[in-house]
Simulated assay, not measured.
Amino acid sequence: MKVVAFERNLQGTGASRRLRNTGKTPGIVYGASAEPQLIELDHNALWHALKKEAFHSSILDLEVAGKSQQVLLRDVQYHPFRQLVLHVDFQRVDASRKLHTKVPLHYLNQESNPAVKLSGAVISHVFNEIEVECLPAALPEFIELDLAKIEAGQSLHAKDIPLPNGVSLTAHLEAENPVVVSATIPAGAASDAAAEGEGEKPAA
């Protein structure tokens, strides 16, 4: 995705407030052994871009003063109750160095899962994104996890996620291997099933 920004010379609370009053959002670009660069972006264009999943998880082409650089969105500050973006941070990407970032998880075939359809199981998503490390060129926009065969009472852990080539879990996730998704049968559904089973038994 391409993002167009402009150089910003003034900084401080007052300057940022005046900038926002003109429909602009202040931001900063940092990293990759270069000096931090103050920027400003069109607020409305930024607001709409932030609604797209890919804007948060993909490498972006940020153009400032006619020069393009690859960046990741690292932080967004929102107004507590107004639809207003107060500030954005972008981090430059070095093509030769691995980056650590979160990638969205897309769950597939949950509705057609037999445990859901036949046993009344409820599938709970513990994580909607997963932290990975990889070179910039290998960064996936999202990672898919097929739930077609997860059974009632079963959980899938971080290490069960099929990762694309060149992508690995971060060290702490590899060590902790937390539950990512689980399938449980609610107490009400379990007792209903037991009651049905009792009703089917022939009289003594």
Rank of each mutant, 00 (worst) to 15 (best):
S96M: 12
Q11K: 15
H106P: 08
L86T: 03
N21V: 04
D61T: 11
S68Y: 00
K98A: 07
V64C: 09
Y30Q: 09
L105Q: 05
Q91P: 00
L62Y: 01
N44Q: 14
A34E: 15
V85P: 00
V71E: 10
R20G: 05
R82D: 12
K24E: 14
A65T: 15
K24H: 13
V88I: 04
E63I: 11
K52V: 10
H79K: 02
L105W: 01
V29N: 10
S58N: 15
T101P: 03
N21W: 04
L19F: 02
A15L: 03
K51N: 07
K51H: 11
S68G: 04
R17F: 00
I28M: 06
H43S: 12
P36V: 06
K24R: 15
D75L: 02
A45L: 07
G14F: 03
Y30D: 04
L10V: 15
K102Y: 01
Q11S: 14
Q110T: 09
G14K: 06
T25V: 15
E35P: 03
W47H: 13
S57Y: 01
I59G: 02
D75K: 13
H56D: 04
Y107M: 11
L41W: 04
G12I: 05
T101E: 04
A32P: 11
R20D: 07
T13H: 11
N109L: 04
D61I: 00
R97F: 00
G14D: 08
H79Y: 01
I39A: 14
L46P: 01
A32D: 15
E40G: 03
V76G: 04
L60F: 06
G66L: 07
K67D: 14
A45R: 13
Q37M: 11
L38D: 12
E35Y: 03
V93G: 04
Q70S: 10
